[in-house]
Write a protein that binds this DNA or RNA. Sequence first.
DNA 1: GGGTGCATGTAATGGGTTACATGATTCT
DNA 2: AGAATCATGTAACCCATTACATGCACCC
Lengths: 180, 180
Amino acid sequence: MSALRPSAYAVLGWIAIEPMSGYDVRQRIRTSVGLFWNESFGSIYPTLQRLQDDGLTELVPGGDGDHPSRKVYAATAAGREALRSWLAIGPAATHSRNEFALKLFFGSMTDPAAIRAHVEEHLAEHQIALEELRATVARLESELGTDDSIPYRLLTARLGVALCETTVRWCEEARTTLDP
Amino acid sequence: MSALRPSAYAVLGWIAIEPMSGYDVRQRIRTSVGLFWNESFGSIYPTLQRLQDDGLTELVPGGDGDHPSRKVYAATAAGREALRSWLAIGPAATHSRNEFALKLFFGSMTDPAAIRAHVEEHLAEHQIALEELRATVARLESELGTDDSIPYRLLTARLGVALCETTVRWCEEARTTLDP
DNA sequence: GGGTGCATGTAATGGGTTACATGATTCT
DNA sequence: AGAATCATGTAACCCATTACATGCACCC
């Protein structure tokens, strides 16, 4: 029985906040910590199986019978305890694979117009992400006090906003610098 | 013959800037785009073999005979062309695995003191990274005009500085928010 | 002599992405 | 009726990390 990977805790964490399906977990990860973490279905469903086998989650009645294949998972006491101890140990170093930054770095070795286009695209993407994150922050602020998880989720969203704002500002400056 | 991965271009890119060894490539990646990309030896050496097989790099005399095992690679014309076209196509979406952000997000489910400790550690790491990046920016600014690659490397370093500054600021605010 | 840094490489493991496969439901 | 969304799952492939293995050089 090998140790659970961070991916497993990303899934378990959401289930511990609120019982939900694998499909839901994916949506939630995308729209909450999506900037910092993501999981594909091909990872989530096997992970869910593993969590079940280890007794960290359990199936609960799915509410409505609209989607018969839908399976709703909840965290067990053992699951919450596993999560608690994993969260307490120091996080592994972040390793990102930012292809945009890589291509920018080697930008002198291709067409300048191509790099300018990459910057524009990067800007557009981050402007969209920024709007979404700001909406998330506003929503979480209004939900303060309703759930213990909100303050932490808010902090994370605010980090996302701050990083996106910085990226957007940098893109706008870079656009000027790279202007032909 | 499958397509080259981004990793291969990260290696090839540095070799195209200046002929160097696999060991050098690793150092350069760490101290330049390290915040956005990293490669381990276990990835670099096989990649180098692959680049050789594809005729994108070639071995050149190593300069001094101090380290007889040292192999210095240079980019061929074909290598530069492969790099040029890869750089021009739109970068794939960034996917980061930021375990710190993940643990913060689920922070309500563990000891608050543990999360505060994570924030302190995150702050310390980014303060160090920030100093290094500022030194890099200063060095690159002094080297402007000596090489075509400098302006792009400078832009990348400035993005790193901006993101680190934002992270440091966020940590300092979070420290206050999480104060017991 | 010992520790650190330079230098190259291999092998195994493991896990995540991608693509594939299927089917129900809701909305236009 | 068709498109989009909800929903679960499998299989293969790939590749990156990790650990292992080796040896020289330099400095204290």
